[in-house]
Design a protein around this nucleic acid. Sequence first.
RNA 1: AGCGGGAUAGAGUAGAGGUAACUCACGAGGCUCAUAACCUCGGGACACAGGUUCGAUUCCUGUUCCCGCAACCA
Length: 490
Amino acid sequence: MTNSKPFYITTTLPYVNSDPHIGFAMEIIRADVIARYKKSLGYDVFFNTGTDEHGAKIYENAVKAGITPQEFVDKSAKNFKDLISLLNISNDVHFIRTTDEKHIKACEEIWNRCITKGDIEKKQYKIKYCVGCELEKTDSELINGRCELHPDREIEIREEENYFFKFSKYGNQLKDFYKNNPQFVIPDFRFNEIKSFIDRGLEDFSVSRLKEKMPWGIPVPNDEAHVMYVWFDALTNYISTLDWPEGGNYKKYWEQGDKREVVQYCGKDNLRQQSAMWQAMLMSAGLPTSTNIIIDGFITGADGVKMSKSLGNVINPFEVIEMFKGVTDYPEDVLRFVLLHDISSFEDGGMSLESIKQSYQANLANGIGNLTNRVMKMATSYGVELSSDDKNITVYDDKNNSLEKFDLTKGVIEVMSGASWIDEYIQKNEPFKKIKINEEAAKKDVYVALFHLFGVALKLEPFLPKTSAKILECIRENKMPEKPLFNRLP
RNA sequence: AGCGGGAUAGAGUAGAGGUAACUCACGAGGCUCAUAACCUCGGGACACAGGUUCGAUUCCUGUUCCCGCAACCA
C-alpha cells in the first residue's frame, strides 16, 4: 500500500492476578473495532495489548500456590491470550508481557533517562503498617485510621527509602500540553477531571520497592536493594512493545510524522495513570506524548450496582460465549455486540445474563439475522443479484463519524438503524406482493434492499467481523445462509 | 469537609432556550417475503424550590438524593 499512514492503538495491560474480567473484554473489543476500522480506511495499524505480571499480589499468590512467580504468570498470561482469540480480536494484535526481555530492557532505559534528567531521586517514604496483618495499608483501606481487621491495634508508621519520580515538576508542562491538545482525553468530562486534578497540585510518586520485601519486579539499575514499582514497569509497555529504544517500529508507529495518531484505551480507573503520570514520564524521558486517551466507563450489574462475587452478578466472558454456542455459529459476535451496543461509549452501563439474552433476541435474531434471511430469500427466488460493480465494493467509503469520535456505541446503533430501514422499506414497498403483478418493480425493490444490506454488512465489519463476512458471502454468491445466522433462543 | 458527575415514561438511555427522541415491556391494528419474525398507530416522563427570559425540562442559585475520586490501589 502506498500512502498508508501509521496508526497506533493500545489497551491498558490487565493485571494477571485474577481471571480475565468482562471489563477487559470490553476494552479490547473497543480497541479492536477502532483498529479494524482504521485498517479498512487503509491505515497501517499497530495494535497492542498484553499482560502486567509483576508485583506483590502475584508474588503472594504464587507463594500460596507453591509455584514460582514465573510459572504463575505463564499460566495466567495464557488465560488472557485464550480470551483474546476467543473474542476474535484482529490476529495481528501484538501481545507484550511485562516479563518479556525487551520490556525489561526498555524499563531500564526509561529509568536511566529519567534519572539522568534528575527526575528520580531517593526519599523517605512513610508507610502505614498494620502489625496484625503484617502488611502495608493504604489510606483507603483504613477506617478511622485503623485497620478494618484489627481495629484494636494502632497503625504503625514506618519509614523506608524509596525512589520517587518528580511528578510535581511536570504540573505546568502538563497544563500547557492539555491546553494545546483540546482533544487529548475523550470524553470531555474526564478531561475536566484530570485538569482539575492537576490544578490541585501534584505530589511526587514512589517508583520503587525494597527487594527484600518484594522481589518480584524489575531490578532498579545500579541499586540491588530495589525493584521498580508498578508505574515505570507497567506503563512502559506502550513503547517496549515497539522495541523501543532501538526498534524501527518505535520510529514508525510512535514518533510517526506531523499528524501522529497514538491512541490509548483505558477504563476510568486509569485516567490519572494514562493521561498524567505516563505523559509526565514521557516528557521526562524526552519522548513524544500520546495523542488521545479514550476513557471507558465500567460495566455494572443490571441495576447499576457494582459487580461482585458476593452479589453473584459477575459476568464471565467465557460463560457468555459458551451460552450462545448452541444457537449461533458466531457466539463471539454476540458478546462483541452486547458490549458495544448495550454499554454506552463513555459512561457506566448495566448488564446481566438476562439483558444479554434480550439484546440478542431483539437485535441479532429478530434484527440482522432475520433480515438476512428475509432479503436473501427474495433475492434468490426472484433471481435478483447485485451487479458486479456493486458487489466488488470492499470498503464503505464514507467515514463513520461516530467512530472518528470514538463513540462506538453510537456507531453500532447507526448500523442497526440502517438494518431496520431495510425492514421498513420492504414493508412499505411490498415486493412480495408486486412479484405477482409487476415482476420488474418487485425486482427493483429487492435490489434496493440487497444493496443496502450489503452496505450494512460492510459497515458492520469492525464490530462483528464474522457476521459481516457471512452476510457479504451470501450476497456475493447469491445464496441463502445454510442456517439462520442467529437462531431464536429456546 | 473538598473535587467531579448525575437525577428525563414501568425499566434502560438520548437530547435540546420555543411541538421531549430511542430501545425493552404494555395496548390496538396490518402484512405473510422472513427465524410466531417484520411494519404502523397508541398510552405514559424532564427530583424539588427560587431566579434570568417573551418563553426553561434545557442557563444560574439553593435544597434533597445517588454515584465516582480523595493518589501509590497494578
